[in-house]
């Protein structure tokens, strides 16, 4: 009893050290806990896997680097998957960190032989938030006369025959924010939309999946790990899943210790309404 009471009062700094250790140890020597693929991920994978070579997809980057560890593994997995299928990718940025992120994520694919302007393009950041999204969705070449590097978009091979967002075969967005902006501005174009969201905002997007305004949903690091499993290509996300499970177990344990400690103290009149002030 005394031990549980003391665990509930442990200095939070010990918890931080413990959390780092709990995350680190399974990453150094993996436990290999099973990853169950959710229906959300398998539906999104099936949709993306149905794309054919030569199809063109939008990747809209709507996150800042501070949210990257949770959402970026999804983008890494989708780049690998779609490029391996010969799908062409047009990258745009809803937030200003986007162009830098796109350059970083496409660099290994350029080294592997993917050609800029033919297999993919980085159109860059367009200021104006939702208004800018609505503008380029209606006329992409008017909103983006040049790409991020200053090349003319009207003569670019990847954008031939593409004028509005309806001309794309699929629309994928990655965000550390809510999905509402894309639902409001893109779903009217009848192009299938897949959202890659950070775990925090994913529950808010689920009603849009049920109403079929979103065609698919990939949720955080876990969604990326499930996607990597479906691709048979374990990557950074899969490596982090053991660590995530262990960290959750630790947090659950300390939530229980904290509550148990509180009730023990309350029974002794040291906490709650009866506690001395």
């Amino acid at each position: 009893m005394e031990l549980i009471r003391k665990l509930g009062e442990v200095d939070p700094r010990w918890l931080y050290v413990l959390l780092v250790l709990v995350v680190l140890i399974p990453m150094v020597s993996p436990i290999g806990l099973p990853i169950n693929v959710s229906a959300y991920t398998s539906n999104a994978f099936a949709l993306l896997d149905s794309l054919k070579p030569g199809d063109t997809v939008v990747f809209d980057f709507g996150y800042y680097v501070d949210g990257a560890p949770d959402v970026e593994p999804i983008a890494v997995a989708l780049f690998d998957h779609l490029f391996s299928k010969g799908v062409r990718i047009v990258c745009v940025s809803y937030k200003n960190h986007g162009p830098m992120i796109v350059d970083k994520l496409t660099e290994p694919h350029v080294k592997a032989g993917k050609e800029y302007g033919v297999d993919f393009v980085n159109l860059g950041f367009l200021a104006g938030g939702e208004t800018a999204l609505a503008a380029w969705a209606a006329d992409i070449k008017k909103a983006y006369p040049t790409d991020w590097k200053g090349n003319n978009t009207s003569t670019m091979p990847i954008l031939q025959g593409i004028n509005t967002v309806a001309d794309f075969d699929m629309f994928v967005f990655y965000t550390d924010d809510s999905a509402e902006v894309w639902v409001r501005q893109i779903s009217q174009y009848k192009v299938p939309i897949i959202g890659g969201l950070i775990t925090v905002t994913a529950p808010q997007a689920e009603p849009f999946l049920q109403s079929k305004q979103l065609a698919g949903l990939l949720v955080g690091l876990r969604g990326a790990a499930e996607y990597e499993k479906l691709m048979n290509k374990p990557g950074t996300a899969s490596a982090g899943m053991d660590a995530q499970s262990m960290a959750h177990l630790m947090l659950i344990a300390f939530i229980l210790f904290g509550n148990a400690s509180y009730f023990i103290k309350r029974s002794k009149g040291l906490a709650g309404k009866g506690a001395a002030k």
Binding site: V23, P69, V200, A247, H248
Partner: peptide, 11 residues
């Protein structure tokens, strides 16, 4: 879960 992912990223 999201915050733990951020810790995993840095670790």
């Amino acid at each position: 879960m999201g915050r733990v992912s951020l810790v995993i990223g840095r670790v």
